[in-house]
Design a protein around this nucleic acid. Structure first.
Lengths: 308, 308
DNA sequence: TTCTTCCATACGCTCATCGTATAGCGTGAC
DNA sequence: GTCACGCTATACGATGAGCGTATGGAAGAA
């Protein structure tokens, strides 16, 4: 295998090439790879020089793979995946042995639902160390190096090794301070989540729509954690996912406003992502989370407005 | 796949690790990889740091793979082989399109049998460019990036896509000048090939054995080309493979001496190593080589001593 | 035409990585 | 015991591979 080092000055060009092949252009690959465009160009050129064939046809619209390039691309994808998969397996085993459990959840869920329960969690699972993989916006696929993930899906979607966590319910919420103040001013400040359409407020409440009244304000956030923090600070009214805000509502740090809660018909589920044989501890933790959420929902019964 | 570049500062440690795993010790790997031992140590340590597990157990007798190390080793071997195989395939196709045919033969065969026929070869195959992969000593396996190889094997060994080239015949030879001189001096200078046992001369000739007569000399060479050059220069008597020396014997630049030729029972065969579908041009070239060798053998008939 | 977007090349600079030197350590011979 | 001989790890100074910035040319798009 040292043939590689003898023939190729570095292996980086292989990865850069792979990225460029996937991106369709050197410029795009540069962004994806966090290097400059000339660096991509040089890396690919070097690989072509060392192998002795053209891998791309340069067009003014981008770079297109040649036949040889396509072959090499597949080989690299396959070969590197083999290695990467094994590394993840090794890491998973290491985590398993160290009692580490990885969760893939939203930052806001951790900040406002999980964090206040960490002490209780540690009491229930003294040997478990949690590792949070925070996801920024909406979720795409399941990461492959995580044990347990919270994902939102249609209620009909079932999956092996998963548990119903909580139905997806959203409702307008604000801090008690803001709730008191808004009665006197009559104006509203909306804290809007970028992922939502602006007309979502129509369905969700009988609040006046943003922009409908002179003096209404609408701030927009693309990070739900920050948005919620603003709501807690009394900056305005936010749409709150029950899965995130249940504890805040119970602690009266947020209060429902507008008299409605909307059940989207989708559900949050806990999914056991473990590739190999299922770990008992993962199921135990999932059960524990489900129980806590059940307690929340029961306690919220008297507080919540009727769901629509 | 850019995950690789994000997590690992360089891919070299993977190759160094693979080499160390195969070598069994960092020092040995350093030699095989042509880098210093501390560099191996650093590379492996870095990989261990980046993956987060120990890959070797350091012993004073060397370094032994841990379980994780063994897993990773297999993955790297497999993954890199995938890539390397594809690269060779691409290169082979490139050679094919460019009319390049690769031969794996001994340096002495090229120097003394093939080279004098290159003009004739080009006349017969004007579009073919030859690429010689010279092998130093005895042959191990077949290289996988070559079209045609000359290999010595038992006469019974048959192989798909191969042609009988010439029986393995060895006979003592010397330059005409040396042949004339030795009659007067009575002493002998032996040009011995390191790969041979010294007593090979017993079987091969009725020459006086090296060391048996006062004044006899025995020089030893581990490169057959150089040994043959020395024989051509009149430096002594050498054991000549007919497959290499036939042209030299025909041109009277070497003459048989000792009155015997030894047929080992083995044969040189031409083997089509092409991995994919057989190339017609390869078979044509093999045929051409066989014909030339046949002509040699026929013309040598009156010159050669009886074979034993 | 002009504008935009793409890739290739030139040019310094910097930092990752190398080799040398050396220390530490375990093992086996005597 | 202790000496010698492997092995690997660490320190340190030097260097060159590879980076980013700046720029040029070519090809579509407006």
């Amino acid at each position: 295998m040292e043939e590689f080092s003898q023939r190729f000055s570095s292996l980086k060009p292989f990865l850069v090439f792979e990225c460029a092949a996937r991106s369709g252009s050197f410029s795009a690959a540069a962004k994806a790879f966090n290097i400059s465009q000339p660096s991509v160009s040089r890396n690919v050129a070097q690989l072509e020089r060392e192998i002795g064939v053209a891998l791309f046809e340069r067009r003014s619209t981008g770079a297109e793979l040649t036949d040889a390039g396509r072959e090499l691309f597949h080989a690299i994808t396959q070969g590197m995946s083999t290695i990467l998969r094994t590394i993840k397996q090794i890491e998973r085993r290491r985590h398993e042995e160290a009692g580490v459990v990885s969760l893939s959840v939203s930052g806001s869920f951790v900040a406002h639902w999980m964090a206040p329960r960490l002490a209780a969690f540690t009491q229930a699972f003294p040997d478990v160390r949690l590792r949070f993989h925070l996801i920024s916006g909406m979720v795409r696929g399941l990461p492959d190096d995580v044990d347990l993930a919270v994902r939102t899906m249609d209620a009909s979607d079932q999956d092996v090794r998963s548990w119903d966590f909580v139905p997806e319910i959203v409702l307008p919420v604000c801090s008690p301070g803001y709730a008191a103040a808004r009665k006197s001013t009559g104006n509203e400040t909306f804290l809007h989540f970028s992922d939502h359409a602006h007309d979502i407020w129509n369905d969700m409440s009988d609040l006046c729509l943003p922009g409908q009244l002179e003096g209404d304000v609408c701030h927009e956030f693309d990070d739900y954690s920050v948005l919620l923090q603003a709501a807690l600070d009394g900056s305005g009214v936010a749409l709150g996912w029950l899965s995130v805000t249940s504890k805040l509502l119970l602690d009266r740090r947020l209060v429902p406003v507008g008299g409605r809660a909307h059940r989207t018909g989708r559900v949050h589920r806990l999914i056991d992502c473990g590739a190999g044989p299922s770990r008992d501890i993962v199921a135990d933790i999932a059960q524990w989370l489900v129980e806590r959420m059940k307690e929340d929902l029961a306690a919220l019964e008297p507080i919540l407005p009727a769901t629509t």
